[in-house]
């Protein structure tokens, strides 16, 4: 099937086998390998991207379903030397170790904060429960989200 999707600001047109998952199209066809696969049951959230601003596990969506949409991956969240406040906060708070869950964790956080700019700790933990991390015990991820909320609030 022919699809047209804007990914990280660039329009892509392509002929896609209808069964292709969005994450496989991003990784294998577009070379967007910053987005990763961590499971096969949609539990881990490592593959989370934004589709029209909403966080989506890109392993649970077909590429053809993204036809006409704008997709943002971790590679398009900020450009060049700029850092998105969520990226800054994760670095400052040591919210990552191996970094494999990080693309998904960051994209879910962006969505969480767009829906709830000042979440409580409990709301953060609930909001990120679909993104698994094995390194950090989530302690510093929670702190990262709190700091990102402050940074983004400050920018308003």
């Amino acid at each position: 099937m022919q699809i047209r999707v804007t990914v990280d600001g660039t329009a892509y047109e392509g002929d896609v086998e209808p069964r292709t998952l969005l994450v496989h199209w991003l990784r294998n066809d577009l070379g967007k390998v910053g987005t990763v696969v961590g499971c096969d049951t949609s539990n881990c959230g490592a593959c989370t991207v934004l589709v029209d601003g909403q966080s989506v596990k890109s392993c649970s969506m077909l590429a053809v379903q993204a036809d006409g949409c704008e997709v943002t991956t971790i590679q398009g969240l900020s450009t060049g030397d700029e850092w998105h406040p969520v990226q800054t906060a994760f670095k400052e708070c040591h919210g990552l170790q191996c970094g494999y869950c990080t693309p998904g964790m960051v994209m879910s956080t962006v969505d969480l904060l767009s829906e709830n700019p000042h979440p409580s700790e409990e709301e953060i933990r609930d909001g990120l429960h679909g993104n698994l991390c094995r390194c950090t015990g989530y302690h510093n991820i929670v702190k990262s989200v709190q700091m990102a909320a402050e940074l983004m609030g400050g920018a308003k």
Partner: peptide, 21 residues
């Protein structure tokens, strides 16, 4: 000290084995 490793990990500029084609 904040980690040197983080810039690439936070921007998706990573080299996981599965990325190798």
């Amino acid at each position: 000290i904040k980690r040197k490793e983080d810039a690439k990990l936070l921007h998706g500029r990573t080299n996981w084995t599965d990325n190798i084609q």
